[in-house]
Amino acid sequence: MDKIEKHQQQPGFFKEVVRRSGVNIGLCWHCKCCSAGCPFAEAMDYLPNQALRMVQLDLKEEILKSSCIWICVGCHTCSVECPQAIDMSAVMDTLRQMAMEEGFPLGQPNILNFHKEVVNSIYRHGRTHKLEIMMRYKLGRREFFSDMDVGISMLSKRKLDLMPSRVEQPAEIRKLFTEDMEDVP
């Protein structure tokens, strides 16, 4: 981002992200320890500290459409290095969920699809069933043959169980999916 145009700024965005994530993003002074330590920074369109800068500057649409918020895996490596104790992963969680709510085109729609398959698996079984997640994710992408070698060697080692391990009270889990989201900030 070379130049910030006034019309790109969405007043109130910064405050909203701070409120929802519970992280005081204003404390970030851009020492870039986070970006230097992030193992996936080279694959991101904006570095982790740049993402925070964009939030500080209310650049809502730009950051919510970015791919970096999806590539971040929440490993907390950056938080350990941050002199200001910024919880980056909590900020990224908030940004992803705001991006979904706003309906902007997403930076990495496939990563969202994967997360949805994991969550669906929890809905069905109360636990995750890896084979099912992989199959549904790959079918959704029409990537029938990618990673076949990996899949076959894992199946042959019985690492991908055919049957899910499941909870005895699935209703208790499913209720969490449908009840009032009374505690969502």
Binding site: G74, M100, F114, H115, V119, R127, V167, M181, V184
Partner: peptide
Amino acid sequence: PDWNCCGSSSAHSINHHLAKWL
């Protein structure tokens, strides 16, 4: 007894409510 998935990174990423309650 009858433990359930803790939500892993996926619930965290896309569903605050589940991440909090699972």
